[in-house]
Amino acid sequence: MKKNLFISWNIRGLGSLDKKAAVKRLVQKLKPSVLFIQESKLQVVNDRIFSRICGNFLNLKMVFSGSAGAAGGLISLWDPNFFECESSWIGLSFIVLLGKFVGSNIKCVLVNVYAPSLVEDRKELFVELIAKLENLKSSLIIGGDFNTVRDRSKRLGVSFNKRASGDFVDFIEALGLSDMPPHGSQFTWSNYRDAPSFSRLDRFLVSDNILVLWPDLFQQVLPKSISDHNPVCLSCIGDCWGPRPFKWFESTLDSLEYVDLIVQTCSGSSSIGIMPLLSECKKSD
């Protein structure tokens, strides 16, 4: 499979030429396989806007959800040589693309999310997405601005809402998603005030079978430019973005064959410590 790169960015308005040029630079430089844009603040995305944000990278396909006045607006773009979109669901706060990865017949659902700022509205969105996605027999990759954090440590200089965090955690757990630790920065949004605030509002969430498909998957917070949100990148390109995490799935323990492998490996090993032993088990698998 070709190298893959997913990018999500809350651009905070695509009306100005500077914002369009910033997206174009990102597309031209990184050539993403999938690009999710939130808060375009555009009711219509026409061919002229498409060409301004894609430049000469015009092989991308596009679906958009128009803004409600000057609020919201989503754009999802993808490379048809990487992902074959078979159908889509479009709402005010999400775009769902149903299809498969080209050349692999692996079914996948790609979801672009811009969650509402109000707690009750955001919970309604999570409930709606769970109802739409939980029974699909497909891998999930969900990216966007969730407008909330998972725990208190992901906010600095701004109040923490425990209830809102709980709703988000329930959403992640209901769909069996993994939230990989970010590289580059712990936060994806900050204000420009004298007393700054920071939050991790933007991220990708993936189902465990995506991690099996791409064991080298990384989540990277890219440098901030023209928006108060950082772009977030999901990639399994072999760049050195830090030490590779050891991935362990509890379902592994359901396999008696794998349990026997662990026992045999550990019995015949002279290594001391859990990480060396786990690494040997991984090599023996």
Rank of each mutant, 00 (worst) to 15 (best):
L201A: 00
S159K: 08
Y114T: 00
P116F: 07
D194H: 05
S190K: 11
D208S: 10
D18W: 02
W189V: 06
C240I: 09
N230F: 09
L133R: 01
R155G: 00
V109Y: 04
D47P: 05
S138R: 05
G184A: 12
N56R: 15
V111Y: 05
L277E: 05
S190W: 08
K3D: 14
N112K: 02
R52V: 02
S93R: 08
R244S: 15
S93G: 02
G176S: 09
L110D: 02
S40E: 07
C233T: 11
L222I: 13
L177T: 03
A21N: 10
A22T: 00
G69P: 09
G273E: 07
C54W: 11
L97W: 04
P215C: 10
S67P: 05
Q220M: 13
G55N: 11
G13Q: 02
A115E: 01
W89M: 08
D167I: 07
V119I: 12
R48L: 10
L14F: 04
G91N: 04
I130T: 14
L201K: 10
D208E: 11
S88N: 02
G242P: 13
C54F: 10
F204D: 07
L35D: 01
G73K: 01
Y258L: 05
I53G: 00
W189P: 03
L77A: 05
D170L: 09
K247Y: 10
C233Q: 12
L133Y: 01
G66Q: 05
S197F: 06
S67F: 07
N191R: 06
T188G: 10
E39R: 03
L277V: 06
D79S: 09
L234K: 03
F83D: 03
I210H: 07
F36H: 12
C236I: 02
L261S: 01
V34A: 09
P231T: 11
L74C: 06
E257R: 02
R152V: 13
S139I: 01
N209Y: 00
N56A: 15
Y114M: 11
H183D: 13
I172R: 03
G268H: 10
L74M: 09
L97N: 04
S267W: 12
I262A: 05
S67T: 02
E134C: 11
F204T: 13
G103Y: 08
N46M: 09
I53E: 02
G13A: 11
L26W: 06
N112T: 10
R152F: 14
L60M: 15
L222S: 05
D194A: 07
I49R: 03
I7R: 04
I37K: 06
Q186M: 15
S255G: 02
P80K: 03
R122F: 06
A21T: 02
R244L: 14
K29F: 14
D228H: 02
M62Q: 08
V96Y: 01
W9F: 14
L278Y: 04
I53P: 06
G103P: 07
V221M: 04
G268R: 02
G72C: 11
P231G: 10
V259H: 01
P196E: 03
V158C: 13
K162I: 12
W241P: 05
K29I: 15
D208F: 00
G242N: 12
K24Y: 12
P32M: 08
